[in-house]
Structures are given as structure tokens and as C-alpha cells.
Write a protein that binds this DNA or RNA. Structure first.
Lengths: 219, 219
DNA sequence: TTTAATTTTTAGACAAATCTAAAAATTTGT
DNA sequence: ACAAATTTTTAGATTTGTCTAAAAATTAAA
């Protein structure tokens, strides 16, 4: 398995929750910042290797083998991110690019020992679940902040966008995993919200609220 | 800088202590388990990029830029090896191949923090010095065990061959960094030696003795 | 439903890194 | 010093992964 193939599998894996049928060529191309023609070529090759199913113009869908492999890469990515934050003093907005490199390192023992060193963490620094050794992924029950109504309260358990600009925006407002967020007010026409976090109030856009996940808290 | 280029630089760096002039094409090819023709091509490309000096049939010699880059790779390799042994319970014969992958990860901060986590180690698990941030390499004074005379004593400070078969051979005889070794007898005709380590006596070949470094101990 | 817009695929080219086979240069042995 | 052996380079082919431009298929719109 080449580095490039692994990246394609991971991308298809990440995108296929948003598509009932196959993941469109263009979606993959956009996500990977490459051209549709390159994707078309590669998808065809991966299909030959039976890592995914593919019919012309119908997009891509991971096979069982392909998914197994993709989950392994995701597990490694998230464990490395956790390592960087927990052991090497990185902040959550700095780890993605480095984990993108580290996720391709091959060694069963390495990843097993890393998991042990970190105390078998369940989620990464962005709240995403870390698949276990057998590839099982725990599904965390969570709702988008944007769906919360005025007066509701929740604990931040994850983000949808892990870009450093967004994560730094959250830092600025002291939003982090585990923080309690209260919706003080909600603007109907644009979906913007007035929030309270740590006794501090501020306003966020609907776009931002669409990238924050909360777990409802019984308060 | 591609992964392949980096590997060539590192190999030339490692080999050039053994050659006064340029490192021969064949020596590089053998070390990298590739063909001389491939080496010839790549060397030419690296010379164009001014990472090394090269004249036809005269072998390769790193430029200052090339050496700077090579040392960085070596620093990363040795820090990662130390990490694997110190933090992830690897033994010294298991780390080479994984460090070979990890040495190409790009991130200044990562390597700085790794160094800190490990307590700024001076040598790797095989006794090789870890270059500092500025690329300075401490030269450890050491002699080959094969050069020791009957009755002499030393402390093991390094090995020349880091292959897992050799390292496992050393483990079997309880030879490790820091161990005191006494030459009880030396066979003139084949250079084999009778050693004492931990009050245990055994015999090793000249080939083995040529791959163990000791620091003379004033006893 | 026929055209227009969009998406996807194909064809052909290219750069990186490698290989084999053969030619050229250098070194060694007598 | 000359021939033989060895080392190194060149020439040409191959694989992987990418790209551009153009053709084909699908979807959307009038």
C-alpha cells in the first residue's frame, strides 16, 4: 500500500458518511486538493485491488478490506494527534499536518505501545473517537450547536472543522472540549447565537455553530 | 527535498568518514541495496541542486548545505530511536527500521519537543552521538574491541553494526552499553577473543570484536 | 424534451525514481 | 605498459502519480 493510496482510502472513508451512494469524484478531488482526472485514475486502480467498489460515473464506496485499512490509518492519525497534545505540548490547532505524516508509519508494535503510553484514550484532541485495535469506532451521541434552542445547555464534545483558523477562533472564545455552553439567545433570520461560556457572553455565526458538537446536559 | 534524496544524503554522510576522497558509487549502491546506475543518476541530480560535489568517476562528497541537511536527518533518526527504547519499550535491535521511517517527518517543533521529553539525550540506544540543534556532533573517544590486548578492560560505548542479528547476538552474551568487558585472552592467528562480562566468560570472533566500541577504563 | 451546464472519464504528456544492458573509463596484474 | 578486471556512466524502458485538454455521460433548466 503506497502513501498515496492510503490517503485516498482515508479521504473516501471520511467523506462517505455524507453520501448514501458512492462518493463523487469531484468531492474527493476537492478534499484532496487535486484534479478530478487524477482521482478518476486512482479510484480505478484501487477498485482493481478490490479496496473499493466503483462503477463509472457512480462514485466510490469502500470495500470491507478498504474500510479496514482506512480505519487503521484513522486510528493512527488520532493516536498521534493525542500524543502530540498530551506528551509534546502541542495545541489542538497545530497537530493535524504532523499527524497527516505520522499516520503512514508502519509498525504494529509502535501503535500498540503508543496507545499504552497514552493510557488507551477514547477520543483525540478534537473529540473524534479513536478506533480500537479491531477497528471498532464508538459512536458518540452529539448534536450540532446550531440545532440548539434558546436556553438549552450542553458540553462541548467535538468539532467538525479541524482547521487551525477555526480552532484558534474557538480558543479566543475559550471554547474547548468539556466546556459548558449555554445558548442565551438565538437570532432567527441568520441563525447566529449569543452564548455563555465561563460566565462570559459573546456572539457566534451560524457557520461557526455548525462546526461545534455538544452533548446535551441534564441541568 | 524528497524522501529518496534525503536517504541518499544520509547514506553519503554515513559513508564519507570511511573515504578520504569522494564516496564511490558502488559503496552507496551497496549500502542502499540499489543499482549503481540508479545511484549515478541520483548523485548527478543532487549535484545539480548543489547538495554535493561530484565529478564523473570521482564519487560524491557532501557540500555544506548537503551535510547540514544530512545531519538533521541523522539527529531525527537517533532521537526517534531513543524515544522508541525509552518511552515505548522497544529493545535496541528493533528500532532501526521504524526510525528509518520516522526520520523523514517534517516539523521543527516536533523534534524540539521530542528532545525535551527525552531529557536532551547525548547518545542513541546504540551509543551513537545525537547531533544538537545546530548540527554539532560530539566525537566520543572510543576504540574497537578488536584492538584491545590481553588483560585490557573497557566499557562498551557503542556498536558499529546495528543489524538486529548482531544486536541480538550481543544480548545473548549480555553485552550492552555501559557493560564492563575484560579481555581474558586473545588468539593471535584469527583475532578471536576470550571475554569476561558480568563474571561470565565466553569467546567471540574477530568479526564481532570489530563491531564493538569500548572506552578504556582506568582500572 | 431538447439544450445547456456540470461532472466524469479518457488520451496523452511529464517528472521522479528505478531497472537492465551496453558502453566508457579507471584500476589492477603481469 | 598493456590486457584484463572492475567500476561507473549512459541509453532506453518501466512504474507511479500527477497534470491539461478534450470527449463522453449525466443532470438541470427552459
Amino acid at each position: 500500500m503506497t502513501l498515496s493510496e492510503e490517503n485516498y482510502l482515508k479521504t473516501v472513508y471520511n467523506l462517505q458518511k455524507h453520501y448514501k451512494k458512492g462518493v463523487p469524484t469531484n468531492a474527493i478531488a476537492e478534499e484532496m486538493e487535486t484534479k478530478a482526472s487524477s482521482v478518476s485514475d486512482m479510484i480505478k486502480r484501487l477498485a482493481e485491488k478490490e479496496l473499493l467498489f466503483y462503477k463509472k460515473y457512480q462514485g466510490a464506496k469502500l470495500s470491507e478490506t478498504g474500510e479496514k485499512h482506512a480505519v487503521k490509518v484513522v486510528r493512527k492519525h488520532r493516536l498521534w494527534e493525542t500524543f502530540l497534545v498530551e506528551k509534546l505540548n502541542f495545541s489542538w490547532d497545530e497537530v493535524h499536518d504532523i499527524a497527516e505524516q505520522l499516520e503512514h508509519i508502519e509498525s504494529e508494535k509502535l501503535i500498540k505501545e503508543l496507545d499504552k503510553l497514552l493510557g488507551y484514550p477514547k477520543t483525540d484532541p478534537h473529540g473524534d473517537p479513536i478506533p480500537d485495535e479491531d477497528g471498532n469506532v464508538v459512536k458518540v451521541e452529539k448534536r450540532m450547536l446550531a440545532e440548539f434552542k434558546k436556553g438549552e445547555q450542553g458540553v462541548c464534545v467535538g468539532v467538525n472543522d479541524s482547521s487551525s483558523s477555526f480552532l484558534q477562533y474557538l480558543d479566543k472564545h475559550q471554547i474547548a472540549l468539556g466546556k459548558v455552553i449555554t445558548v442565551k439567545d438565538k437570532e432567527e433570520f441568520d441563525g447566529s447565537m449569543q452564548l455563555e461560556v465561563d460566565h462570559r457572553e459573546f456572539n457566534i455565526s451560524n457557520l461557526a455553530a455548525n462546526n461545534i458538537y455538544l452533548k446535551t446536559v441534564n441541568s
